[in-house]
Structures are given as structure tokens and as C-alpha cells.
């Protein structure tokens, strides 16, 4: 036996090095934070009012539904799966809500119905994946077509929502503070505001964080991503957890649909095409490994903000179009995948 592994037993490193090593796992999320700061600084230098309070809050206001989608997606990707159905399920949520409201249903009934339907759909997808060993990619692709098809069967055009509660959620501003801006016409005083949708999204974030880090269910999600057969041999509830993450993703998609219909005061069967890819991109940019087992829901939220900044560039700069934003997102996703590879390779 000539091979010597590192000292196996006994003090293997001075404690100072140890404590540093503990933070190494946060390096992908640190990269996201640095990137975000750089992007915000760039926007602030280049565009007027880019860093004004309202512009920053709009990063949240305009994309509250994407936050919720990305949070649900994080659960799935942490187990090593993927959910391609979230955009379509979100659209289905808006359509079911608009249709039921137009039939005179109460919002107090409509919202739970939408959430239950989307959760059940996610549950069925999870059951397919677990019981019949179908690839998550295929199962959720099927669910995507199903949800989109159902939405189009209900209506093939946009339905306006006139319900007072939805209107209220659409229009109500939560005023945070007053601000003065200098415009050419003189000094203007306005309120900096956010919306109830953002509050709901942040609430979901807190719940998701607690579930992932302070419950056995959450730790099992991570364990499955680390090694499904190991988790099974450790006696963890692998099947139940795997099914649950798809149900959670379904629930989040339904909620995103509700938030979207607050935002647009309508139900639209063709909305959200490609949003699943935005959600996946946000999760990846947020530092979560696509292979599962490593990442943070907070990172996914930072990922969504990063995407929002890119959209804000477009809004502030008339010379940029949607093509440009997609190239930018693509480049960032690529950058982060390469970064993950390098980090994983270095650790080995």
C-alpha cells in the first residue's frame, strides 16, 4: 500500500482554513451578487433614473409572477428534475380565473380553485415521473401541451377581468415613501410604490426558504439531488418528496397565473410561452446546479432580478429590442453553467 490518501483521521487542517472552506459553497451565489451589482452600476451610469427608487422597485413590480415561477422551479431543479410546464400552467391559471370570474364566481372561490387545479396537475406529473420512471423532461413536456391545449379549449382569445377585487389588486399601489424628481417642467413629487403581488411573492420566498432549510422535507429535496439512490438507502421518503416538488411547482405556477391576471386584469391562453425557460435561466443564473443538490432559493430570486435588469435596459434604451435581451440572457446562462463546471471541477 504505497498510496497515501490525505490524513484520514485526526486534525486535518487548521481551524482557520476550515471556517473559510465553509463559505466556499456560497461562491456561485456570490458570483450572482457581483454580477447584479455590476449590471446595476452600468445601468446607473448609462441611463438617467435607472437607480431611482421607483425604477428599482419596478424590477419587482413588473415580474412578480416570474419570482413565483422561479421559486417553484428551484424545488424541482434541486432534486435534479426539470419542469417545462410552468409557463403553460400559468396561462391556464389566468384563463380559468378569467372564465370563472366572467361567469360571476366570487374571487374567494376562484383563486382556491385555480390553485387546486394547478397543484393537482403537478401532482399527476410527479406521480408519472415517480411511478412510471418517465423522464421529467418528457412528463412535463406532455403537461405543457396539455395545459396549453386546455387553456385554448376554454378560450382562444384574451378575456378581460372586470371583477372588483382583481381590479383592485391591479391598481392598488402600496406607497412606501415620497420622492422628488427634477424634470424639464420643474420639480415633481411622487410616491414610490410597490404592489400586493410583490408582497405575495416575497411571502412565498420566505415560506420556500424555511421549507427548504428548516424542514426534513426540504433537506430530503437536497439529498435527492445529491444522489437519489443514496437518499433511498438512507431511508428517506424519496418517492413522496419527488412527487411533492412537482406539486409545489404546479402550485407556484397557478399562483403565478393569479398574479399575472392581477397585473394585466385579463386571462390569456397564449401568455407565458417560454416563461419556463426564463424561470430555468433565473434558477441557473442564481447559482443552482442543474444536476441538483446545490443551490438556494434566494439565488433564484437574484436570478430573476438579473433578468429584470436586462429587461429594464431595454425599457430605458430605445435602441435595444427583445432580440438583444435574449442574447444577453443566453450569454449569462452560458457563463453561469461554465462557472458551475469550473467550481465543480475544482472541488473534485
Amino acid at each position: 500500500m504505497t498510496t497515501t490518501l490525505q490524513p484520514a483521521i485526526g486534525p486535518e487542517a487548521p481551524s482557520k482554513k476550515r471556517s473559510l472552506k465553509r463559505f466556499e459553497r456560497y461562491s456561485p451565489i456570490a458570483a450572482t451578487v457581483v454580477l447584479l451589482i455590476v449590471m446595476l452600476a452600468f445601468g446607473g451610469i448609462r441611463y438617467d433614473n435607472f437607480l431611482s427608487g421607483q425604477a428599482l422597485l419596478d424590477l419587482f413590480n413588473k415580474n412578480s409572477y416570474l419570482f413565483v415561477l422561479a421559486i417553484g422551479m428551484t424545488f424541482v431543479i434541486l432534486t435534479g428534475g426539470i419542469d417545462l410546464s410552468v409557463g403553460a400552467v400559468m396561462a391556464m391559471g389566468t384563463v380559468i380565473a378569467a372564465q370563472l370570474l366572467s361567469k360571476g364566481w366570487s374571487p374567494a372561490l376562484v383563486i382556491p380553485v385555480v390553485l387546486v387545479i394547478s397543484t393537482v396537475l403537478g401532482l399527476l406529473v410527479g406521480l408519472m415521473i415517480d411511478k412510471f420512471k418517465i423522464q421529467p423532461f418528457i412528463a412535463t413536456l406532455a403537461a405543457m401541451f396539455l395545459a396549453r391545449g386546455l387553456s385554448l379549449m376554454i378560450t382562444d382569445r384574451q378575456i378581460a377581468i372586470t371583477d372588483t377585487f382583481f381590479q383592485k389588486m391591479n391598481l392598488t399601489h402600496i406607497n412606501l415613501w415620497e420622492t422628488t424628481t427634477n424634470t424639464r417642467r420643474g420639480v415633481r413629487v411622487s410616491d414610490v410604490y410597490t404592489t400586493w403581488s410583490v408582497v405575495i411573492a416575497l411571502l412565498i420566498l420566505v415560506i420556500a426558504f424555511v421549507v427548504l432549510h428548516y424542514t426534513r422535507f426540504g433537506r430530503t429535496v437536497y439529498a435527492i439531488g445529491g444522489g437519489e439512490s443514496s437518499a433511498n438507502l438512507m431511508g428517506l421518503a424519496v418517492a413522496r418528496t419527488k412527487i411533492s416538488v412537482y406539486a409545489i411547482s404546479g402550485l407556484c405556477s397557478g399562483l403565478a397565473g393569479i398574479l399575472y391576471s392581477f397585473y394585466t386584469a385579463s386571462g390569456d391562453p397564449i401568455v407565458g410561452v417560454g416563461y419556463e425557460l426564463n424561470a430555468i435561466a433565473a434558477v441557473v443564473i442564481g447559482g443552482t446546479l442543474l444536476a441538483g443538490g446545490a443551490g438556494y432559493v434566494l439565488g433564484s430570486v437574484l436570478g430573476v432580478i438579473t433578468l429584470s435588469v436586462i429587461y429594464a435596459y431595454k425599457d430605458f434604451d430605445g435602441g435595444l429590442n427583445t432580440g438583444w435581451t435574449r442574447v444577453m440572457i443566453g450569454a449569462l446562462v452560458l457563463l453561469f453553467i461554465v462557472l458551475q463546471r469550473v467550481l465543480v471541477a475544482r472541488r473534485k
Binding site: 424542514t215 426534513r216 433537506r219 439529498a223 445529491g226 443514496s230 438507502l233 438512507m234
Partner: peptide
């Protein structure tokens, strides 16, 4: 059982690998 290939999850901490599934809880939280 300890299997031939270490059947733990390497992406989590040593403590979690020892206690996973049996984590001590306070007020329902780990």
C-alpha cells in the same frame, strides 16, 4: 447498513449526513 460505494449525499454537510431523516426539531423546525 454501510454499502460498498459510500451511500451518503456528498453535497450536504457531515452533520446532515449523520442525522438526515432524524434531524432534531424545535417548534417543528430543524
Amino acid at each position: 447498513t454501510v454499502y460498498q460505494e459510500v451511500n451518503l449525499v456528498t453535497n450536504l454537510t457531515v452533520a446532515e449526513n449523520i442525522m438526515l431523516g432524524r434531524e432534531p426539531r424545535r417548534f417543528g423546525m430543524i
